[in-house]
Design a protein around this nucleic acid. Sequence first.
DNA 1: CGGAAAACTTACTGACGAGTAACTTTCATT
DNA 2: AATGAAAGTTACTCGTCAGTAAGTTTTCCG
Lengths: 246, 246
Amino acid sequence: MTKWANAVPNRTTQQELKRQAIIREAARIFSRRGCHGATLDDVADRLGVSKTALYRYVRNKSDLLYACHEEAMDIADRTLTQGEQSGRTGLEKIQHALGAYLAEMIGELGVPVLILEENALQGDEAERIYARRDEFETRLRALVEEGIADGSILPVNPKMAMFMLLGAIHWVTKWYRPDGSWSAEDVSDALIELATRSFAAAPAPRLNANIHNNCGRADDAGRPDRRGTDELRTDSRTKGIAADDR
Amino acid sequence: MTKWANAVPNRTTQQELKRQAIIREAARIFSRRGCHGATLDDVADRLGVSKTALYRYVRNKSDLLYACHEEAMDIADRTLTQGEQSGRTGLEKIQHALGAYLAEMIGELGVPVLILEENALQGDEAERIYARRDEFETRLRALVEEGIADGSILPVNPKMAMFMLLGAIHWVTKWYRPDGSWSAEDVSDALIELATRSFAAAPAPRLNANIHNNCGRADDAGRPDRRGTDELRTDSRTKGIAADDR
DNA sequence: CGGAAAACTTACTGACGAGTAACTTTCATT
DNA sequence: AATGAAAGTTACTCGTCAGTAAGTTTTCCG
């Protein structure tokens, strides 16, 4: 029965893989061009198929958008749980959770989330996503409060602190490009260390992440070319490392 | 000649006022719904006129989008210059500049900027805006470097620090609503104090902004209603103060 | 093989929204 | 009051893109 020693996935897993690929690609495009600015033809082109092919894996555009959000929330919930369990203080838990969240979001297989355009999701789907997001934010705020209680975090307005962190993190999708010289982990480490220092009760006297140290600060003035159809801001031009081919 | 003792503005200034109103309203809607998700009918409705009326003041939709960006960059440049002149250390300059920028952006007459959807602007207009933004970011990075040099800011990757700040700031337009219990200045002060503490060489042992202190932390769990057509996340429901009427 | 389901394609339709044409109302000035 | 420009309206056109219909190729399995 099992041909090729199961090296080739069977049909149903292939279907699932294809659906995943659609979701990832769609998430990227939605988040760059905006949900309304992105067409299903764009997504299909990137995947090398025709638009109608997508409809075998996805009911319609809003179903796809919803799937992107669900996927992103899955990542958010999972990494948050990891953080809650691995850290010891509230501060550490936040750092672990959001570090993993960011790294995964911008990493190879991530679902670079979804700038929330109002009214892009509608009806029940919107309700479900908003409910999940609210729960996520509540848990995150609880970690801030835990940190304040255990003394690792300064007395701070938890909502404000949370919004600051989420802003800093989600903004990354606006400027980060994976083919730059910074890896997803580099960026994640540096950004989380920096952002959480803002409310650390005992802020470290120096920053340890690679990006804050071993990167020259001299030639940071260069700016990437934005003319390409899919260019997004990155350090590629500045560092002269990344290929300019996509 | 001058009737009504110039209490009523003449025609050309009225034109200019109307154009400004269009730009402000459009910026708000663009930034909420996304440029492609917003229709000119939406903008016109909010202003109580028909879509075609807008065309007397604006060449077309991309012209309007461009005007929004120019307006926002005007604010950014102006507040940055103020900051450069008023602060003493690099850190202070950044705090003054970005504090004023944020307060003005989300304040009554602000142009709540413009989530950059890729390819929303095109051609020369895109080039001009990108050039201005690049220059702004370069100046901001220079302030970070100045702060490192004068000892007010920790050695940090300036680009990373800048992106973190801009993310935290621009994200505000995603959750802030002016009719909540937090004023634009409250939010601005609290967020800037918090965010810049992340790289302060001598971070304060406590946060002084109102929001971090006099706001109870007990009932922060409530979430606003998102069903209304124009609802955006805010603390209105949580604090039970703001009107829910728009 | 053969045949049937799965996977995709090309060619369409229908809605929505930007922009225009042509007409009406408002208002300042003689 | 008369008139002409400014300000706005209603009713349209036309392109783009989501979604569908119908047909073609690929793949699995007896």
